[in-house]
Structures are given as C-alpha cells and as structure tokens.
C-alpha cells in the first residue's frame, strides 16, 4: 500500500497554500479553527471524488487543488476549476495506472453514540463491510456480519472487547424488522441493549471492529478520545496503530493523552494566522524540541507550551 507522505493543499477554507507531511499513523493537533478538520476533509474529498461518491458536505471553496506525494516517489495532483463540485480532475502529471491503487478508497470517521446505537439493515452476504456513514451508523449490522462470516474474527473481536471491558461476556445483537442494533450480555447474564450501553463501550466497539472491515487505503478519524476514560486511550491508539499496517490513519485530536502514545514524527501542529492561513509544523521540528523532550513527554510539552491560540511558545525558539 503506498503511503501518502506529503499533501499540499491550496484554497481549501483556511488553507491557502500549505504542505503537511504524514506517516502511517499521524495526528494533527492545534487550536480550534486552525484547519485540522479541513485538512481531513480535503484529503477525504479526494477519495470521495475518486470513488465517485457524493461529497458528504459541500464545501464553499474556489479553485481548490491537492497534490499527494507517496512514499513510492510518485505523486498525484487534483484541481478543480471554479466551485468545488463532486469531482476533482486528475492533473496532467498523474499516472492513471497509479491512481487505480486508490480504488480501495478512503473514509472519514467521526463517531457519535446515537449513530453507533442506531438500528440498521442487515448486510448482504459478500457485501463489503464498512460503516453506513461517517458517524458510525451500522455498527450492529457490521458486528453481525463479522460474526457470521468468520468464527476466528468473531472470537478475536469478543476476546478484545472482554480484555478491555471484563464485565462483558459476549455480543447480543438485537433484531427488529430485519434491522440490527448492537448489545452485549454481561458476565452476570444481564442483557444490555444499545440504548443502555455506555458511550465509552460504543466508541470502543467502533474502533475495535475496524480491523475486520473492508481494507481501505486511508481513514481520517476526528477526535478518537471522545467519550473514553483516560486509561482506555492508550488501547485505542494501539488499535489504530495496528490498523495503520494496512490502512493509513490520520487523526485530529485535542487530547495530550493521545499524542503521548505517538512518536514525535507522527504528530503535526496546525496553526493559523490571518496573514498566512493554516500552516503545519511537525512536532519534532519545533524549536528546542530535543532539549524540551528531555523534560516533557509529547503530551506534556503541548500542555505546558500551548496557549490554544497561536501556540507561539511552542513555535518560537527559546530565548537562549
């Protein structure tokens, strides 16, 4: 799987012209309204456009363009003349054969508990497994399909959930008019339907099923820490790191605990000024990084230096 090593984005919301380097598992951090989510949307829009999927959210942007550089040395360019429509057009330098590698597609996930709880139609045999929308709708049907298709996957998923939530014994899927919703049976025999499941368990299940779904090229996940106990966050990052062996994973996060689980080259600080728009700075390329990380872990560094506005102290060299 070719990895997107670098993305240059032009004219996407606050991003006038900026380049971000990525790794297999990568997190964008920074103040609110700095352009993190727009970066995810720009990249995922490329995949939507390539897969001929309608764009989930029509973006009010003019003459946007995107250039992707891969670890294979190849690159691909897309641009759009005028208002962004449903489709990017490949640039002249893009090798059509190379583009075929992206038929696996990409997706954005921004889980919310109501969608994860929702009843959704059963998935047909052989149909590719993925969520019905970016909010995690279809979780019950996905678990149903995973269980039906592979005993090994069924056992692995159940064992994983039990290891993190020891009170859970097994999945209990609820059916109503050919629609499935997820539930669990506890070790004391209590059956817990979706509407009574904790948000933390629902979020965890959303991430835990990812490795059993149709392999895709790229997944962008917004704020994976939502709803999770701090002690569970390391486990979620472990799940995402395992997933990143087959699917490139890009996160946005506001949690120092998430970036504490990442390597310095896997974290990029996103900032925005009126003059330059959005800019990207990899954490290990911020000033005095080597000295500062003798005293601070990545998450601690962010907490101690960031101000939530310009992150000036993090980006400016030390006085001496």
């Amino acid at each position: 799987m070719p990895i997107i090593e670098q993305v240059t984005i032009r004219n996407f919301g606050p991003i006038t012209n900026a380049t971000v380097g990525l790794s297999r598992l990568h997190a964008l951090i920074g103040p609110n309204d700095s352009g993190k989510s727009m970066t995810l949307r720009a990249i995922s829009h490329f995949f939507d456009s390539w897969m001929h999927r309608p764009t989930p959210q029509r973006l009010n942007v003019t003459q946007p363009s995107l250039r992707l550089q891969f670890d294979t040395g190849q690159s691909a360019e897309w641009s759009c003349d005028g208002q962004l429509a449903d489709r990017f057009e490949p640039g002249p330098s893009t090798d059509p054969k190379f583009i075929e590698a992206f038929d696996a597609g990409g997706s954005v996930l921004r889980f919310d508990p109501d969608s994860l709880r929702a009843e959704t139609p059963l998935i047909e045999d052989q149909a590719p497994l993925w969520f019905s929308d970016i909010h995690g709708r279809g979780l019950g049907a996905l678990i149903d399909a995973i269980q039906a298709r592979s005993q090994r996957d069924r056992d692995a998923l159940t064992a994983h959930v039990r290891s993190v939530f020891p009170l859970v014994d097994e999945f209990r899927l609820f059916t109503k008019e050919q629609r499935r919703s997820v539930g669990v049976r506890l070790t004391d025999g209590t059956e817990v339907p979706a509407e009574h499941m904790s948000e933390g368990l629902l979020y965890f299940l959303g991430f835990a099923v990812l490795r059993f779904l149709r392999p895709i090229h790229f997944v962008a996940i917004e704020e994976p820490e939502n709803g999770l106990h701090p002690a569970r966050i390391a486990e979620i990052v472990r799940v995402l790191r395992a997933l990143s062996q087959t699917t490139q994973v890009l996160l946005t996060t506001h949690s120092p605990l998430v970036i504490n689980e990442l390597q310095p080259h896997e974290v990029t600080l996103v900032t925005r000024t009126a003059e330059h728009g959005t800019t990207f700075t990899r954490m290990d390329r911020t000033p005095s990084f080597a000295n500062r990380t003798t005293a601070f872990s990545l998450g601690e560094l962010w907490l101690a230096y960031a101000d939530g506005v310009s992150e000036e102290a993090l980006l400016n060299p030390a006085r001496r």
């Binding site: 003798t294 005293a295 601070f296 601690e300 030390a318 006085r319 001496r320």
Partner: peptide, 15 residues
C-alpha cells in the same frame, strides 16, 4: 521530580 525538570526547562527556554 518530573515537574521540577519541566520547570527548569521552561526557565531555560526563557533564558
């Protein structure tokens, strides 16, 4: 002890 090291680093950053 970790906080004291952080404090020292912040002070060093400020010369």
């Amino acid at each position: 002890a970790a906080k004291l090291r952080q404090l020292e680093q912040l002070a060093t950053d400020s010369d």
